[in-house]
Design a protein around this nucleic acid. Structure first.
Lengths: 163, 163
DNA sequence: ATGGTGCTTCCAACAATGGGAAGGTCAACG
DNA sequence: CGTTGACCTTCCCATTGTTGGAAGCACCAT
């Protein structure tokens, strides 16, 4: 079948199918006489495997490892589990980083009037991390908590970075 | 002061400082007679502002907006709050996506022996989403839950994508 | 003057994806 | 038969934010 059909059936679009081939994630597709790439049901199956793994947030590199294990009938399930659990830990780290950001920013936003006046604790905090927040609108809170850490370093960005 | 010193004081490295200038996020730095960029305490302040915003996961585009508001003494805090709350929503979406992945993958991993045997529900699920999991090791659970959704589409990847 | 460090610019790469141009193929239709 | 339109091919470019390097000046200390 043509690449378009394979794309439709696998849920991976043509562009990506060619890309995955180009980086060696999938085997080099056989060609029809026309020069068109030719795909079998088996190929579609592999593409679906890739798509599912991508949906689970696996990197292309990890998927390569998983594909190798998939093809290896003698693999040990421990190998697969190790990759997966490592990925789960990566995801948990990301989640934590995001949650920290949400907490800090929500806290700041909560203390921002959000009206026409220029005073804004969010801006003030970005400009100078030492600023403290005034007490919230109408809540029982110690009011003097020096807000979130937001010190230096650490992995603020969500993007995957080189380990 | 030289760029290296500004980098040290702001927590933004030289490479990034030049980059931020090149994309117009910061103003064009004045030059010393040597041709070296020259930075004032004020510039360092702005760079710190940028770093904090990056730590909170704001995109460069958003930071540009926040910087404009920072410089505008007549800004309304509502504008700042709007940007921030939108960002919080973006972060929450990301967190949700990640949590879904964690849930699915943890579930699969939990059902994987992780020993030398080749049977592995993780691989099986990637290969064919219809496979069902056998009952867990030793837990009270309905055992027949057709595992996580992981249907098609949606935003599986964590990376920021064009809206 | 010589070395080492810091600065300059420019170019490339990463990951994963999308957009588009320029051209060849195929099937269907008049 | 010819043309149209949908599909395929390769190749290049853009994205986002960051890092790496190379080649070439500037500065400071010995």
């Amino acid at each position: 079948m043509n690449i378009g059909e394979a794309a439709k059936r696998s849920g991976v679009n043509s562009k990506m199918i060619r890309y995955y081939e180009s980086i060696g994630l999938t085997e080099t597709a056989t060609r029809q006489e026309s020069g068109y790439r030719d795909y079998s049901d088996n190929d579609v199956h592999a593409l679906r495997f890739i798509r599912r793994a991508r949906d689970l947030g696996f990197s292309v590199k990890q998927i390569g490892d998983l594909l190798a294990l998939w093809r290896d009938r003698d693999r040990s399930s421990a190998d697969v589990k190790a990759i997966s659990l490592q990925h789960v830990r990566d995801l948990q780290d990301k989640r934590q980083a995001i949650e920290d950001m949400i907490a800090t920013l929500s806290n700041l936003a909560q203390h921002c009037h959000g009206d026409g006046r220029p005073d804004c604790p969010i801006i003030a905090n970005l400009a100078d991390a030492d600023v403290e927040l005034r007490e919230p609108q109408a809540e029982s809170r110690p009011s003097k908590a020096p807000i979130a850490p937001l010190e230096r370093g650490h992995l603020g960005r969500t993007s995957t970075r080189k380990a």
